[in-house]
Design a protein around this nucleic acid. Structure first.
Lengths: 269, 269
DNA sequence: TTGCTTGGTTCATATTGTGAACCTGTGTTT
DNA sequence: AAACACAGGTTCACAATATGAACCAAGCAA
């Protein structure tokens, strides 16, 4: 392995939980020699990727990363970072894929992509999504702040005969979403539309939006649902990575469990 | 020089102006061999610092930098502490405001803010600032350690016809900066840019960076300069407070004196 | 076809990285 | 105060890794 990679790998030991690390401690974590690690840290310091706390001699991330992050954000904005996953999702499933971003308490449509596979297909042309009535909305409610859930329950607009209209119904649906890691909206927003969704995260670790797939309800089957879920998982990982976040380990577990006990899934729907 | 540093130095060629760079092009910019540069880019890609545009084969910054920036910001929330002052400064003056942080002997761009007031304005797109050629640089030299001044004078790069090129010229400029409390760079870094700057301090009491304002030289007047200086003072107090430091009483005195004897100011410039 | 440019690879050479042992300072225990 | 433990940091003989001139293949224009 090149020394450059070894050097750069040291950076990933710095985290919110452990923002400052001493030389010996970092050696233990990285299972590296002290002299080598010291030289690597010197290199990183030279280019501003780490700096030293002059009091404690501990190392922490340096200011150079801020500038790079700014440029990255300008280079690959959110929409571009979701484009590939969106295409692949709609291709793989033959249905309409959709990405949304959460800003404040509103879920905005970022992009959507239809598949030409079926002549009857879901068209998404709404700029914002109601949180209580869509799969994407349930996802951000399930993985967002409790305050967001409170706000969303203040005004439960009715869209179809299946729309959740009481706070306890919404809370139950959010609970299910949290448990499986998949948001599910069966004709709750539009008649004949069955939607599945997964949350997306950004560099702050907070939920930043959702990736969803809208299928025509009459052609939705158990098998189709499994395929969609698998593709949603892949897509969420890619988009989340591009947005600088990572899928929480607990969510990955829930996804794995949900797919294992797949027979239970449709009961929840 | 270590290969890790050579590898990391490639990153600073990516900017808003040039977010995606091809292999050959990057070789020319970095004045490096193609094979070496290619291996360096592979290393950077391995750890997510760059990624390749699959269409064009060009390289761009990768998502890994976003997470690091987030952690850095949580560790040392400098950027957040400067944001308000930056906005107010650029609003009040109608010019481009800029904050930099000193780490080791390098002055890094933390953030900058343009005002929409003029259609011709200064764009700041540089990750690091030369100490001898910018107003911000003179500030940290004037209020930083003597060792920093020594280091900075070792390699006096020429940027314009007005760049200070000898140690004694730099020392004189630093002396002026110390006397007035304002760094001043009149076309020394870029033609047509007139910059004024004030130092920022952190909890250790040491100079931690600089707040500066870059104006188009042709519209700079005495009155404008006074207004800029007053706003810089306010901004420096706020940012320094947010960073856990305080403006030294002696500096406040120098600022007051400088504004009183304002007629002398432009002579120094 | 030729010629120019691109991204990418090879392999002999030589620069660079490596880590056990060492030094130095500090705070704690005896 | 002596002895100890642990911290950050350094040295140097040795070994691995980096380097770049020359190379290949693909794309494009004349």
């Amino acid at each position: 392995m090149s020394s450059a990679v070894k050097t750069l790998e040291l950076l990933k030991f710095f985290s919110d939980a452990q923002p400052e690390i001493g030389l010996t401690q970092l050696c233990r974590m990285a299972k590296r020699d002290k002299a080598t690690t010291h030289r690597h840290l010197q290199d990183l310091e030279k280019v501003g990727f780490v700096e030293q706390n002059m009091q404690t001699k501990d190392y922490r991330l340096g200011p150079a990363v801020l500038q790079l992050a700014q440029t990255r954000e300008n280079t690959v904005p959110r929409k571009a970072g979701a484009k590939n996953a969106l295409h692949r999702l709609s291709d793989a499933t033959g249905e309409t894929a959709h990405v949304s971003v959460l800003s404040g308490t509103t879920l905005y449509t970022l992009d959507s992509m239809e598949s030409p596979q079926h002549s009857i297909r879901v068209i998404i042309d709404l700029p914002t999504f109601p949180l209580h009535a869509t799969a994407s909305g349930l996802c951000v409610l399930a993985f967002g702040s409790p305050a967001l859930l409170e706000t969303a329950c203040e005004n439960l607009e009715k869209f179809t005969e299946h729309t959740l209209l009481t706070k306890s119904e919404v809370q139950a649906a959010v609970e299910d979403t949290r448990k499986t890691g998949f948001g599910c909206a069966n004709k709750t927003f539009e008649d004949e539309v069955y939607s599945l969704s997964v949350p997306l995260f950004d560099q702050t670790g907070a939920v930043a939006g959702a990736l969803s797939l809208a299928s025509v309800a009459s052609r939705f089957t158990h098998e189709v649902g499994l395929n969609i879920r698998r593709n949603l998982m892949t897509g969420a990982r890619e988009v989340t990575r591009n947005w600088g976040g990572s899928i929480p380990a607990s969510l990955e577990e829930r996804w794995a469990n949900a797919l294992e006990n797949s027979t239970e899934l449709e009961i929840l729907s």
